[in-house]
């Protein structure tokens, strides 16, 4: 299955992936309206320290602890992609407790969680973070 992979030595720490993620999942078709004066809450997040930086998002694990531990059945694997049914999620955050990568976070209003779904549910269809990465520090491929 195609996944997003990180090449940390190419990462500039520019945070564009975070903005592209937030825009892609905003449901808006104007980047300025989607992002200006908005505190973004992207599903991909950059870690940086002492000149090292890299992006972290859902690894779509084959043995996903988040899915197995989900108390509602809101998290499930659909064709290899771990998706959340926000309508079922009650925001208990058991998945945040479970995810070893720290790749799941509360959504904007805190009533449910959000996570990377490889942009399959938004208008992009393919990961917007990868498409907008200026230095190929994240790639979407089979490994």
């Amino acid at each position: 299955m195609k996944r997003v992979y990180v090449n940390e030595k190419w990462c500039l720490g520019c945070h564009l992936c975070e903005y592209n993620c937030a825009y892609a999942n905003s449901g808006k078709d104007d980047m300025v309206k989607a992002l200006k004066n908005v505190k973004i809450n992207p599903r991909i997040q950059i870690e940086e320290k002492d000149g090292i930086s890299f992006a972290v998002q859902c690894r779509h694990c084959e043995e996903p602890l988040c899915v197995k531990g989900c108390i509602t059945g809101a998290l499930s694997i659909q064709d290899g992609i771990i998706e959340v049914d926000k309508d079922k999620c009650v925001g208990c955050f058991t998945c945040i407790l479970s995810c070893p990568y720290g790749a799941i976070m509360p959504d904007d209003d805190g009533h449910a969680i959000q996570k990377c779904e490889l942009c399959v549910k938004n208008a992009n269809g393919e990961p917007a973070c990868v498409a907008g990465c200026p230095n190929k520090a994240i790639v979407f491929e089979e490994r």
Binding site: V6, N7, E8, E47, E48, K49, F54
Partner: peptide
Amino acid sequence: KPQLMAFSKKKREEFLAK
């Protein structure tokens, strides 16, 4: 703060590039 930066480069690669 919980973060993957605290792991070795090799571990980070295992987490994010494999």
